[in-house]
């Protein structure tokens, strides 16, 4: 009968798989030509890499904008968004921005905030 890997080997495999996922995703994010400059579907201008100014640096805005650029221009952005929309069916609508419960005299009307 084939022997299962030892506990130490199991840990090595687990660590390798998780670390590899992080490193591969990280490497993809740093392949700059893969970063989109406009959304394929909506054709909106995405966040650009922030311009460096001393005031932006000291206020922290420059770093925050880098973080925003990094997230907003992730490679395969629109594919990622489509998958996430699918997940929202199970885990709730993340784009929800308020719940407007308008009540008329006789019935509760269904309206939802934008």
């Amino acid at each position: 009968m084939k022997k299962l890997p030892s506990a130490a080997s199991h840990r090595v495999i687990k660590l390798t798989v998780s670390a590899a996922i992080i490193l591969i995703l990280s490497a993809i994010c740093f392949i700059f030509p893969l970063r989109p400059t406009a959304a394929e579907i909506k054709d909106n201008k995405l966040t650009e890499f922030p311009e460096f100014t001393v005031s932006a640096l000291t206020s922290g805005d420059w770093f925050s904008d880098i973080s925003l650029w990094f997230s907003d221009t992730v490679p395969f952005r629109d594919t990622v968004k489509k998958i996430r929309s699918g997940l929202s069916i199970a885990f709730g609508d993340r784009e929800a921005n308020g719940l407007n419960e308008s009540v008329t005299e006789n019935t509760s009307e269904i309206t939802e905030a934008g």
Binding site: L4, P5, H10, I13, K14, V17, S18, I21, I22, L25, S67, L68, S71, D72, V74, R77, V80, K81, I83, R84, L87, R94
Partner: peptide, 28 residues
């Protein structure tokens, strides 16, 4: 034993991928 090992190895990786999907292209 196999079920446990597969779940134990896969779960951190799956959780990281799901987290990346949620964090990508969305405001912090």
């Amino acid at each position: 034993n196999v079920i446990y090992r597969v779940c134990d190895i896969a779960s951190p990786a799956v959780l990281i991928i799901l987290s990346v999907l949620y964090m990508a292209a969305s405001p912090e």
